[in-house]
Design a protein around this nucleic acid. Structure first.
Lengths: 232, 232
DNA sequence: TTAGAATCATGTTGTTGAACACAAAAATAC
DNA sequence: GTATTTTTGTGTTCAACAACATGATTCTAA
């Protein structure tokens, strides 16, 4: 019935929740699932909109951000493939308090939250999946409050670089971050101005902690980076 | 079987979860529920401990905090009676990343998390209760990241005062905050040093936004306080 | 019981350093 | 070749910190 372009294999794409579902449950999700492509920098949802769908990133990179005081934006989290997002606001019964945009060309699978809620009310394993995700994210958010408020500028930037490494990994050379961020995005991730991101990055290059080539960032001395992240 | 001192009525004390439970489920909770009193400033749990129990504050006030860089502590949230806490770490399968202490003499009801997990895997309503709580808290944490990092010192303090009003209400005079915090705690809540909390509070008194008498804080001009909180 | 000691919370001030705004140049992308 | 991004420099603001003063409370030993 739905478009024929869905070559995507749901069972492997949504693996984490697929595992815990019955055949019936899978069927109702199959019927509803939609796939949407977003171009680089395209908005996926906006602050204050009402959430309707669970989203699972299949391909690409997505940033979740908030516009703060004077429109200054703060990146809250970054999403990588096979991560779910967009469900918090629905569960809290609120409009989105964040916005999401495709950081690079991305594919997202959408599933109606109402269907998900129906299923999880009967399926304890699925309920536990969301409880666990939310609990992990809440722990990260609590840690982030302390990191962003108490660490100094170098520590915050070092931490962001390590976070990007954990999230998206490295390229074949085993050193270059597998994501190319504008200085401005790096700044929004680390709670600093673009100027300071640039200055501090240059500092790291001088100290031979990283190397840069345009937006490519190579981690030279990860131990030292960790030390900076802990101390400053 | 259990101590006779439990005059506490579980059905009204745990009302929010009690409503959604079957008689069987209630019985297994009744059998396990324990009541513990904590004196002012006594620790309830410590960072890095393993979580075992769901906690429900029945009486008193509790603060959840993290020790950050150089032992500087950051208050993450404040708990008021009939709020649940202590479950996040269990669900995330982690040791506590925060600590909790009684802010004043408090009574807590403890229920084994294993029992709770067993029940919620079969009871979709209970599962939704925790999903909703976690979702709300995660939204607050995201907002908090922006508030604490982007607002200026006056805005952060103003926000904390309004938060305390929302959380614990006012005394009979309709103006005095129904919680007496040390300047240090106020500072830890607002991400500033004790000196700055004192300085900024004095400023608010000069501007006739609040009045102070020791630890008592009277909100004189709530509109102005809101304006300060919004503007930064 | 009370004078004094010790401790802690509160309040004040000056200094220092960090981070920001602004501006303007250089490099790069489209 | 125009626009955007990146880079560097300068002056200013702001908040952390240290050092210190004061007052309240608790403890203790005569």
């Amino acid at each position: 019935m739905k478009g024929k372009k869905e070559i995507v294999d749901l069972s492997s794409s949504l693996s984490e929740i697929w595992r815990v579902l019955s055949e019936n449950e899978r069927e109702s999700i199959r019927k509803d699932a939609r796939f949407v492509n977003y171009r680089k920098n395209e908005m996926i949802y906006f602050e204050d909109e009402y959430p309707k769908d669970l989203m699972c990133l299949l391909k690409g990179k997505v940033k979740i951000f908030k516009s703060g005081i004077g429109g200054r934006s703060q990146i809250i989290r970054m999403i990588r493939p096979i991560q779910y997002f967009g469900y918090r606001a629905y569960f809290a019964n609120e409009p989105y308090v964040t916005a999401a945009s495709a950081f690079e060309s991305s594919t997202v699978c959408l599933i109606s939250m109402e269907i998900i809620e129906d299923i999880l009310r009967k399926n304890g394993d699925l309920a536990m999946f969301f409880i666990q995700q939310l609990s992990i994210d809440l722990g990260i958010a609590d840690q982030r409050v302390v990191n962003l408020t108490q660490k100094h500028i170098r520590g915050r930037l070092a931490e962001s670089l390590l976070f990007l490494k954990e999230s998206y990994g490295l390229e074949e050379d085993g050193a270059t971050l597998n994501i190319y961020l504008a200085r401005e995005d790096l700044a929004n991730l680390s709670n600093m101005t673009t100027s300071n991101a640039i200055r501090t990055l240059s500092g790291f290059v001088d100290e031979r902690v990283i190397a840069m080539d345009g937006r490519k960032i190579k981690i030279i001395d990860e131990d030292k980076l960790r030390k900076i992240s802990r101390m400053g």
